[in-house]
Design a protein around this nucleic acid. Sequence first.
DNA 1: GTTTCTTTTGTTTTT
DNA 2: CAAAAGAAAC
Length: 766
Amino acid sequence: MDTRFVEGLNPQQAEAVTHEGPALLIIAGAGSGKTRVLTHRIAHLLASGRARPHEILAITFTNKAASEMRGRVEALVGPEARSMWVSTFHAACMRILRREHDAVGLTSTFSIYDTADSVNLMRLVAKDLNLDPKQFSPKALAARVGRFKDELIGPEEAVRLTESASRFTLEHVAGQAYGPYQARLEAANAVDFDDIILKSVRLFEEHPDIAVKYREQFRHILVDEYQDTNHAQYVLVREFVGMGGAGTGTATASLTVVGDADQSIYAFRGANIRNILEFEQDFPDAHIIRLEQNYRSTQTILSAANAVIANNTERRPKNLWTDAGAGERIVGYAADTEQDEARFIAEEITRLMGEDNRAPSEVAVMYRANAQSRAIEERFIRAEIPYTVVGGTRFYERTEIKDMLAYLAAVANENDDVAVRRIVNTPRRGIGDAAVEGIEAAARAAGVSFGAALRRLDEASRMTARARAAVEGFVALLDDLRALAADNGPAALIDAVADRTGYLAALRASDDPQDASRIENVMELVAVGREYGEENPDGTLTGFLEKVALVADADQVPDADGGGGVVTLMTLHTAKGLEYPVVFLTGLEEGTFPHARSMETPGELEEERRLAYVGLTRAKERLYLSRAEVRSSWGAPQYFPASRFVEEVPGDLVDWRRSEGLDELERARAERLSRRGESWSGIYGTKGVDRATGTLDDRRVPPSPPGSAPGPDLGLGIGDRVSHDQYGLGRVVALEGSGHNAVAKVDFGDLGVKRLLLRFAPVVKL
DNA sequence: GTTTCTTTTGTTTTT
DNA sequence: CAAAAGAAAC
């Protein structure tokens, strides 16, 4: 046996690395070294001669994980390993679909629609079907259609399955909308995210010759994070392995999957734990290896995580252990407000950087929803803590970037209706709603796409001469860009789009302060294009668009470099697979985490708990749990009781602290918020909170909900001095309105006179 | 057709 | 409170 790759591994890990057999399931507990096992297994396959690099297909959850895995294997066995396929499901399928596009009925320039594009397309479908967008939001319909695709259900079958449902359910309407949606998608020569997998499955099912070709190539399939695969991905794996329906006479490939049912956090997107629980039934002669020793966390952290996950009933018990010492106690902090929570985190990080000599890159702050980063960011800026937010309003989802990319997509694919419609009047060029309607009518009459109809305007008689001229100008512009794209790389095209379309000029001319940063973003996209051109000398426009479409949140996580670095802020979902010496788990309140919308159904609540488990197990040495009693989600601030997940952590593991040493200003603000927050929403339960321990207490039931929140009565008069969180000190110069709508005009000196709606404004009377 | 004002709505989580 | 959508004025 080749012992090079098992040195320093425990017996289970070593067995997982060297096991020979048709199917292997590695049940890997959190922090059990699964990434190492997977990379060493690949290295072992290569070094022992069982596999050649091009015979390996390894599926990871993110592109970043893929490039790291490839790098490690190359370091272990040499550069020839480069010809392995290591990528996400989506990237692997795209590679196949591009190659075999004829067989799936696409032209080579097909577009990829992300979630936002799908919703836009669904908006058109909903309009065609006369659906009320308030009753059935395009977003919900698009998501439901996506779930059909995850289950490999086609439009006709979806209609059949949902016709019995009441006509006015999302279920039924989505079934009806699926067909028209898919028709529009295909007419646009585009695929959405779910199609990438679905069409790959269909390709293999309907073209046995192609299936056999890939099966003969890939002799070893490895899938990481198997607990988060959906049905379509499961069927695809079976096709790869040779256990699918299509093709005959091909020997099956070996299959290795790695996963942990306790870390399944994507059921909302179609992931099915069944895939991991029933692996043995699915793949005969399957062997199972459990990795139950944790090498990541201290015993304290692990005990907390084990205690929390034990509350899930739909679960096979697991015995995850460590021989690391107890380590530091967990620190809990019950803050008054989200600002107070942020202040605590910032102070604690500053202290850790000083006293414990921690680098910022050793610290991560995690939260349930992206919007929660805001208060923390504001505080970090003030405290001068270097940080990055991963995900959030993602770069590629910003309006200006989507606009620019829509130009590129329209240039690459004339039939891409979502892209063409997005830019037809951006920047303004005199093609308004009426003109768009006319073009639409022409497109329908001629049975062509919106983009193609731009050239056939004679058929749209109702259009004004001016609009017609504007459209002609637009068509000429696109043709110019197409000519340029024909013999230049994507970088040159992005440059041209920014300049020749007048997009940058419009931003520069605007007096909206936000447009300054939009210009920067556009320039950054230009830089991204240049970088792509340098890294891929023969990279194409479609290649660039594909790369951009498939970037994931987790791909942007900064590397943990030795010197300094930055604190990472991210959602718990993005944190999957990562680890940090110091982790802050924030917003542990009923309604925030678990999220209010997941608290109704037991299944969703258990998924929230798995998410908590993922969060807890990211920490190696120090773990902080924090919550805010008052959080201003939107509108009025609200009280939130402590999260049940906090209570599920054994009390002796946690050192609870409460806000102390608030300065006068902050205390006044906390009081003010409390005064207002007493309007109890009622949807988050009826338990009170023991302020000393931060735990739920049935005896302390909050005040009953008043019909309307009491207006703030600051007792302000003209001439009073006030303090504002942002503007600082000021003097009241006028008062308008009363009660709920009371407004004060306050002179903040250099900052000028501001009109403040007292219901919201963060002001304190001094 | 475009700008500006007013009203409404919204926060899960993401390949 | 902010962003987006809708309505009215230009």
